[in-house]
């Protein structure tokens, strides 16, 4: 954050974060007024000063429309998979079997990995149990997958999601290395990039 050459590319994500927090503040109050806007800006700047997020640099543009398409796809998948899991919960019969499937990711971007974990823990009947951006691999527990065809189907869904996310340019946003290694104890699945990822 010190090098002046990176000033612009570092400042822009900060501005987006302030705007996003201000929007949340206004929604919480329910009405728009200048007092709410100014109060929200003050609170947002205060929050970001007290709890700084890791600095990110963007090597290229993130495309909002492509990102919107991902959001719509995930929404549709959520409808399908929640009905599916609901049926798997109530159907009679023996205990359901599952698989833990390793999926390779074509890029080691941490934001891409964080968004994949976020989406895959919500949608196609899966929960990510382990992810490593350095190894470009994530492992997902998929409910009800009992054969290789099911594994293939899951892999196809993941690769479609990866393609869409990369079309949105998500993998070009990179976390600055200076903020690594906080909080230790091995319980730190980078949940901070998640929080502001969808923006």
């Amino acid at each position: 954050m010190s090098a002046p050459a990176r000033a612009w590319s570092v400042r822009r994500p900060q501005v987006l974060r302030v705007l996003w927090l201000t929007l949340v503040w206004i929604l919480l109050w329910g009405t728009f007024s200048w007092a709410n806007l100014i109060g929200g800006l003050v609170v947002a700047v205060g929050v970001l000063v007290v709890f700084p997020l890791p600095a990110v640099t963007s090597g290229g543009r993130v495309r909002p429309l492509a990102l919107l398409r991902v959001v719509l796809d995930v929404a549709r998948d959520l409808a399908v998979s929640s009905v599916q899991v609901a049926w798997q919960s109530v159907r009679p019969g023996p205990p359901i079997r599952s698989s833990i499937v390793a999926v390779e990711v074509p890029d080691d971007s941490e934001l891409l990995m964080a968004l994949l974990v976020e989406c895959l823990s919500l949608v196609p009947g899966s929960v990510v149990v382990e992810a490593s951006a350095a190894e470009r691999t994530l492992w997902a527990h998929v409910l009800g997958v009992e054969d290789d065809a099911g594994v293939e189907r899951f892999r196809r869904q993941v690769s479609r999601l990866v393609t869409d996310l990369m079309a949105a340019g998500v993998h070009r946003v990179r976390v600055e290395p200076e903020h690594s290694g906080r909080s230790g104890a091995g319980t730190d699945p980078r949940d901070d990039p998640d929080e502001e990822g969808p923006r």
Partner: peptide, 17 residues
């Protein structure tokens, strides 16, 4: 559902939807 991971699915997807 038989184990914690499977129950996790039920608590995530249908619950959120």
């Amino acid at each position: 559902l038989p184990d914690v991971l499977s129950r996790m699915h039920a608590a995530t997807k249908p619950q959120t939807a």
